[in-house]
């Protein structure tokens, strides 16, 4: 754990979303997380090369894909629970009728 040296780095490194996109890849079950990791690597590479504007854009993209991956899977789980509750409830009602 180090502090970023403000004297040698004129701009702070933009958030690279690497950890978040790894989480999204492993837990969200969606290849969108991979896109997040690709952009996270871009952030690191461009920042090390001194391209701060490019690193910032890559950071935005990494964040975007990580969030897409996250919300798609949250949506999937919510739909799934709704589906089970709805049809589970209907099955219970049906069992009363029969």
């Amino acid at each position: 754990m180090d502090f970023i040296n403000q004297q040698t780095t004129p701009q702070p490194v933009p958030k690279n979303w690497l950890v978040e996109s790894i989480l999204a890849t492993i837990f969200c079950c969606l290849p969108f997380g991979i896109a997040g990791i690709v952009f996270a690597v871009q952030v690191n590479k461009l920042y090390e090369a001194g391209d701060y504007e490019g690193a910032r854009q890559a950071s935005d993209n990494a964040g975007k894909w990580t969030k897409v991956s996250f919300w798609v899977s949250v949506g999937g789980i919510v739909l799934c629970i709704l589906f089970v509750t709805l049809f589970g409830g209907m099955a219970v009602l049906n069992s009363f009728r029969n």
Binding site: F3, V19, K45, Y47
Partner: peptide
């Protein structure tokens, strides 16, 4: 504290 580890290319 920046997690420098995760910020190396």
């Amino acid at each position: 504290i920046v997690q420098k580890f995760f910020y190396s290319a």
